[in-house]
């Protein structure tokens, strides 16, 4: 498998397969996220990177023996470990009898939303999700720290020229996407607010929203996309998302309850839970969307910078 492009495509298919596998295992929320995030964003990012770092892997003799030894040993330990595991799917396994029953039985009374995963995600273990949002935020900041390019020289006339030349070449796909993007955005908002009742929630919505913007950027060029959503605005949204999430917790703290205790947010506890979950889902959605867009813009910006340098070198090369 020397061609990295094929490798990445296969990884995309693998993620999609694992998403369908999760659906078969009744883990719908996870399947949705895996499909959107795993198959969508990571494959996309890898493709962008491959355009920058070259498609073919150098045929090098890789050192199999050490790897084989480590792998076989760890595999053996794991297989050794699986013997006492509860069998697949039996109902009286310890995890189904200790903590989970309360979530399944009381979540309707305490939080009042049908999708138990969202209720656990947003209320019982809200701090985990907060940590997760911060992870995404860190990744965004990390990528920005690594790849952010200085202020780009604004050459308007050149971009419009590129735009026109691209126009007649990508006519079909541009028209179709123009039709599709509103629906994708609408669908993202639907997923955002539908998280309480069916599979969905902040993460998936954010990613779909970002996918729409990225589609737009790929087709209409980075500079036009930057005009639509400029860099500092995205950063503001990313920060605002995390702060919103945190402030929900601080508000509940000010009202006397523990951090992330939504019961005190409104008069009656269940309404408070609803409000709390809505707000933090919104925070999650904003952060994820803006961070994904930020990451893609950075990657694309870096690629554009590389291409400019190549052009500049070629011009110098030719002129020499």
């Amino acid at each position: 498998m020397k061609d990295l492009f094929a490798v990445v495509m296969l990884l995309g298919i693998y993620s999609l397969l694992s998403a369908s596998f999760f659906v078969a295992m009744d883990a719908v929320d996870v399947a949705f996220t895996e499909a959107a995030v795993g198959a969508g964003i990571s494959t996309l990012l890898m493709l962008v990177v491959i355009t920058m770092t070259g498609r073919s892997e150098k045929t090098t003799r890789h050192k199999p023996w050490l790897a084989l030894l480590v792998v076989v040993f760890t595999g053996g330990v794991l297989i050794y470990g699986t013997f006492d595991m509860p069998y697949f799917g039996i109902a009286d396994a310890p995890i189904h009898s200790h903590v989970a029953p309360r979530y399944i039985n009381e979540s309707m009374k305490e939080i009042g939303i049908p999708n138990i995963v969202t209720s656990v995600l947003a209320s019982y273990r809200a701090f985990d999700t907060f940590g997760e949002v911060v992870v995404i935020f860190t990744a965004g900041i990390g990528v920005m720290a690594l790849l952010s390019v200085g202020r780009r020289p604004e050459e308007d006339e050149k971009t419009t020229a590129i735009n026109d030349s691209m126009h007649e070449e990508y006519l079909v796909i541009r028209i179709v996407t123009k039709m599709l993007i509103p629906f994708i955005l609408l669908y993202a908002l639907y997923v955002q607010f539908h998280g309480d009742f069916g599979p969905g929630g902040g993460f998936q919505a954010g990613v779909i929203f970002a996918a729409a913007i990225i589609l737009y950027t790929m087709l209409f060029g980075l500079t036009t996309a930057r005009k639509v959503i400029n860099q500092s605005f995205i950063q503001f949204i990313a920060a605002a998302g995390v702060l919103l999430y945190g402030c929900v917790g601080i508000v509940s703290m000010l009202n006397g309850a523990n951090f992330f205790d939504y019961n005190v947010l409104a008069s009656d506890p269940v309404a408070g839970q609803h409000l709390g979950i809505l707000l933090i889902e919104w925070g999650v959605g904003c952060t994820v969307a803006s961070v994904m867009i930020m990451i893609f813009f950075n990657f694309a910006g870096r690629r554009e910078m590389q291409q400019n340098n190549e052009k500049v070198n070629n011009i110098e090369g030719d002129s020499l």
């Binding site: 079909v172 796909i173 179709v176 039709m179 599709l180 629906f183």
Partner: peptide, 16 residues
């Protein structure tokens, strides 16, 4: 409706 819209576009893009 969506598949009817997206299907041909993807094949078009693939061919291009």
């Amino acid at each position: 409706l969506l598949t009817l819209l997206i299907g041909p576009t993807t094949s078009h893009v693939l061919a291009k």
